[in-house]
């Protein structure tokens, strides 16, 4: 099976600090992969590299077979992608942020419609119907016309999920989607993600929710100090971690 995301020997530094050392990871189409690990282990950075929100220092990332941030001409030459090409590549992945990052000057509906109307130039009426359907699918049909400031954290994050789905990506990236939430809203967001996982979309989820990873993930990767220290089927990794460091991390989590 061809990987939908193929990360190969990825290196990334912030100034003098190298936060990712030769990270390699591949994700199959339709797979749900949860990435666990202590704070500062590089999980979020790796996710942001997939979406080109960070530029990579070495290695490469293939998304649907195309090298992220580069294009190939018909002679096989590799070029740095232009901003327009990078934008087109980003459209293949949807991203859900820890801090929601909804557009505060737009309603929930406006947030979801923004990309279909202004990026994909779909007809307004069609985009509106699709956006309303997406909001209904995350249980927010009644809140379509509210502004983010008038929604709870859980509702905002579900709008953000609907927004990420609006360009019909085949991959969804989640960056600690529940870490900024009050505990009372965590359940509803995880519920929406559980429903999504059943649709067959590829999901890469950086999270601290070990229980959720056990229930939903096909595979779990554990990162520490910029490396993947264990990766495999969820049950195996969570119950029988391959390395002592992974075991130590999981023990602290319980």
């Amino acid at each position: 099976m061809n990987a939908i995301i193929d990360i190969h020997k990825l290196k990334k530094s912030f100034g003098a600090v190298e936060v990712l050392h030769d990270v390699s990871l591949s994700v199959s189409p339709g797979e749900v992969l949860c990435v666990l690990g202590p704070s500062g282990s590089g999980k979020t950075t790796m996710l942001r590299c997939i979406n080109q929100l960070e530029t990579i220092d070495a290695g490469y990332i293939l998304v649907e077979g195309e090298p992220a941030g580069f294009t190939r001409d018909h002679q096989g030459g590799v070029w740095l992608a232009t901003e327009a090409e990078r934008a087109a590549q980003r459209r293949k992945t949807g991203m859900v942020f820890q801090g929601f990052n909804l557009f505060p000057h737009l309603t929930a509906l406006g947030n979801v419609m923004e990309a279909p109307v202004h990026v994909l130039h779909r007809p307004r009426a069609e985009a509106r119907q699709q956006a309303l359907d997406l909001l209904a699918s995350v249980g927010l049909a009644d809140h379509a016309h509210k502004y983010p400031a008038h929604l709870s954290g859980g509702q905002q994050q579900r709008v953000a999920i609907a927004r990420a789905l609006a360009c019909d990506p085949r991959i969804l990236l989640f960056d600690e989607p529940t870490s900024a939430l009050d505990p009372e809203w965590v359940g509803e967001v995880l519920g929406a993600m559980r429903d999504l996982a059943k649709t067959g979309i590829t999901m890469v989820i950086v999270t601290h929710e070990v229980g959720f990873a056990r229930d939903v993930a096909d595979r779990v990767a554990i990162m520490a100090d910029g490396e993947i220290i264990d990766c495999g089927p969820a049950e195996r990794v969570l119950d029988h971690p391959a390395t002592a460091r992974a075991e130590a991390f999981l023990r602290r989590r319980h």
Binding site: N51, Q52, L53, E83, A84, R86, A87, A88, R90, R91, T93, G94, M95, F97, N101, L102, F103, E114, A115, H118, V119, L120, A160, R163, A164, A166, C167
Partner: peptide, 11 residues
């Protein structure tokens, strides 16, 4: 805000 805009495919 910029990151969210980029992530939905804006230049």
């Amino acid at each position: 805000q910029t990151e969210a805009a980029l992530s939905i495919g804006m230049t």
